[in-house]
């Protein structure tokens, strides 16, 4: 089957890209000033020589470069990402497994908001092409995607938290509540599965502002693409032919125009996810949301090289995976690729 072959080819490509990224992070970790151990342990390296020696052995830091590279790959694949000086020398892998779920929650909800808002406004703008509504929508999304996510976050914080007082100003959940046990690893989903509704409600309320900030900063791209591809599709011969059949405008739109215009949104969606996951670096710090984005900021400030390199890798994995899904989805939707 062609789709399968296509998917396998893209998968191979994704693996190659990730291998290159791994190599790059390895090279970068050797370009950092001083030796690796110093970067990891800072002054503690001199204070606790035994500890340093133990780490050096565990991560093969004193071997030759090719050997180090081999163990680097092995360690990465096993989730041993080094230790984080900015988080009290706990393993980076642990920091990431604690923070990534929160970040993924923001990415998920902001993606939903962004897509819903972007698509809706795109449809409206195309429907009322060149009317005041079209112009108003354009102004709205122009403001959105021209603003840094943290600026939007600050505005929302002032309006909804301080001025209106309807949404919490920070954190991921009410800390007085019992946290759900780990089922999928995503707290919001786990609390729902467990029936811990108090936590679920609190977590949802806390995720709204950060996700909405990112959605406001990103929906413009979707609106723009949805609008232009709808306008383009509505001009095609097959829409005219569908009208000639006597289909109602609603049927023409929902059965032919919208599905065909949506195809171009698949590629855009993977761009949006990239934008959203990097955007968490900013909005999490504004809302003190305990995700990976905030870890990146503290790691950068604390010259936490293993932390920064490991998060880079995680970003790359998420993005490569998203691109892979988008590619396959695109191929699935377009019969020319699926069957050709």
């Amino acid at each position: 089957m062609n789709l399968l072959r296509f998917a396998l080819r893209r998968l191979l490509f994704a693996v190659l890209v990730l291998a290159s990224v791994l190599t790059i992070t390895f090279v970068l970790s050797h370009l950092i000033p001083g030796n690796v151990l110093q970067a990891w342990l800072g002054r503690s390296a001199a204070q606790f020589p035994n500890l340093a020696a133990a780490y050096a052995q565990k991560y093969h830091l004193t071997d030759s470069i090719p050997v180090q590279y081999f163990y680097y790959l092995v360690n990465m694949l096993q989730g041993n990402l080094g230790i984080s000086p900015s988080r009290g020398f706990i393993p980076v892998g642990q920091v990431i497994s604690e923070t990534l779920p929160f970040t993924l929650q923001i990415v998920f909800f902001s993606f939903i908001f962004s897509l819903a808002m972007g698509l809706l406004l795109g449809i409206l703008a195309a429907r009322y092409y060149r009317s005041p509504a079209d112009n108003a929508i354009r102004l709205f999304y122009l403001g959105g995607y021209s603003s840094p996510p943290y600026f939007i976050a600050v505005i929302l914080l002032i309006v909804f938290s301080f001025y209106l007082g309807i949404l919490p100003s920070g954190g991921a959940y009410d800390v007085s509540l019992t946290t759900p046990s780990i089922i999928t690893g995503l707290p919001i989903l786990d609390s729902l599965l467990e029936g811990n509704l108090a936590y679920f409600q609190s977590a949802m309320v806390h995720v709204l502002l950060p996700s909405f900030s990112l959605a406001l900063a990103s929906f413009g791209i979707i609106t723009r693409v949805a609008r232009s591809s709808l306008l383009e599709v509505m001009q095609t011969d097959y829409i005219r032919a569908a009208r000639a059949k006597g289909l109602s405008e609603g049927a023409v739109f929902f059965r032919h125009a919208l599905p065909n215009a949506s195809v171009s949104l698949i590629t855009i969606s993977s761009l949006i996810v990239t934008f959203l996951i990097t955007g968490t670096i900013f909005v999490e710090s504004v809302f003190a949301y305990p995700g990976m984005g905030q870890f990146v900021v503290t790691a950068l400030a604390g010259l936490d090289y293993p932390g920064v390199l490991a998060t880079t890798l995680v970003f790359a994995v998420v993005i490569v995976a998203t691109n892979f899904v988008a590619d396959v989805l695109y191929a699935y939707v377009d019969p020319q690729i699926r069957l050709g």
Partner: peptide, 19 residues
């Protein structure tokens, strides 16, 4: 350039900035 596109420029820039 494929590899470049797999990494968000911002993150890549942060890593290099650290160095």
């Amino acid at each position: 350039t494929d590899v470049f596109f797999a990494l968000p420029v911002l993150v890549l820039a942060m890593v290099i900035a650290l160095l």
